[in-house]
Structure formats: C-alpha cells, structure tokens
Amino acid sequence: MQQAINALLIGISNGFIYSLMALALVLVWRSTRVINFAQAGQAILSTYIAYEIVTRTDNFILAFIGGVLAGALVGAVVEILLMRTLFKHVSDGPVAALAPVIASLGLLGLIRSVIGMVWGNDQKPFFPPVSTNGFTFGSTTVPFSRMNLLIVLGAATVMIIFTLIFQKSNLGLALRAAAFQPEIARLAGIRVGAIRTTGWIFAGAAGAVAGILISPNDAITPYSLDSLLIFGFVAAVIGGLESLIGAVVGGLTLGIGLSFILTYIGTSLIFPATFVVLALALIIRPQGLFGSKAARNA
C-alpha cells in the first residue's frame, strides 16, 4: 500500500513535468503543424541559463524567471529566423514535406553543440532550491520531497495560467482560431504570423519551466533532456496532439503509469515501457484521448 502511494506521488510529480513538455509540443504543433524536436534543445538551453544565474547569484527565483524568459525568447527567435524562412522556401518533394521536422532535429543538434562549447559536455550540478529529501510522516518517509511539491505547484500554476489565457482571453481566442483555420482567422483580421510566434513563445516558456524544474533532481548535460522530449511526445500523443488538456492528462497518465512500472517491475523497463505505452496509445485511440479527428493516419 505504502509502495503504491509512493509510486503515485512520484508519478504525479514526473507527470506534471511530462505534461509541460507535452504542452510545449502541442502549442507548436497547433500553431505551425511541426513537431518541434528542438524543444528539448530550447529547454536545456534555458536550463543552462538558469543554472548560470543560480550559480552566480544563488537565487533560484531569479534563475527561474531568467530561464523562462530566455526560453520564451529562444522560441520567438527560432520561429522567426528558422520556421518562417523554411515555410517561405517550401516546395514539393520528399524532403520538403519533412523539412520542418528535419530542421528542428538539426536545431536540436546545433543547440547542443553550442551548449557543449560554452559549458562543456560534462555534468553540471544544478542545486535544488528546496530539500529533495522526502517528507516524513511519523516514522515513515515518503519519496515525495519539497522539491516534488515545488514541481507540482510550479507546473500546475503554469497550466492554470495557460488555461486562463487560452480559454478566457482574446489572445487565446486568436491562438486557437489561427491554429484551427488560419485563413479564416486572417479574414477576421488576426495577424496570424504574430500569433504563430506567440505560440512558439509560450511553448518555449513551458519547455523552460519543465527543464528548470526537473533538473534540480539531477545534474545537467547538453543531452539530459532528450528523454524528457520523448516522454513529452508520448504524453502529447496520448492526449491527441491537438489538445492542451489532453497534453496535461497524457503527461499525468504517462508519469503515473511509468512510475508504477518502475516500482513494481524494474527500472530497466522505462524505455521499452514508454514505447509500449506509445504503441498502445496509437492502437487503442489513434485520435488521442481528446482528439476529434483522425489526423495521424497517412
């Protein structure tokens, strides 16, 4: 029983991080129809910037804000410099159809190499702002720590802010309209180009939050968020790739599911398990939990 509760708590904490990454992928997918593999790169870059700030100032809050702003900025730069140029040159052909995906992969490589040149490829310790020792209740200690609590609260806050923006504000309405029917949105007077950039900015910020929150549990390297990218992608697919709520639910489902597998079966299975979850998601509900259209069939 105790073990199950532990698995659940850790699953929720991880799940929130996966949700944030999924959210970032979904935001970009909705605004530009690209699966942005560079999201892992953008997030780790933001995390390194936060790391730099925290080692210099010893102030996690400042580092967090700095990292998230950097993430937002990088998102804007990538959309404006890379994606716009890409869509201007788009033409037919087997590669052209894949060009955005491949460009995002290239960008992932580029960002990592640059990080490696600036900070080195070795592990950098990212010191947690609060204790990573589990809470103690009477005589039992659960693996859920203050840091986990911070993760859950931080991620939940970001999601609530996003939901409010998306559902209640004009900006959110414009974002959704531009995602669903860019042409009609333009005819309604919405500057779709700028809105698209905004989507990338939000995605960049969400990815940065994910990176900065997950890293204090571990050291960072230019590659340390690769697996988060995969978890985020699977979570987004579970949720239907189009839906923000789906991304959150998908992330939590995956987080909790993997946590139970790790607890009861063994750590060695984390990637095979992720793969099985992905396959199951694609087979059982190809349109995702919250997807309405079967968009993924060729």
Binding site: W29, R33, V34, I35, F37, A97, L98, V101, F233, V237, L241, L278, L282, P286, A295, R296, N297, A298
Partner: peptide
C-alpha cells in the same frame, strides 16, 4: 498506419 509527424516521433 502513421503519418509523418507521428512516425518521426515514434
């Protein structure tokens, strides 16, 4: 059964 982005991710 998958289209481009899903296959790329998988």
């Amino acid at each position: 059964r998958l289209s481009g982005p899903y296959l790329a991710g998988a």
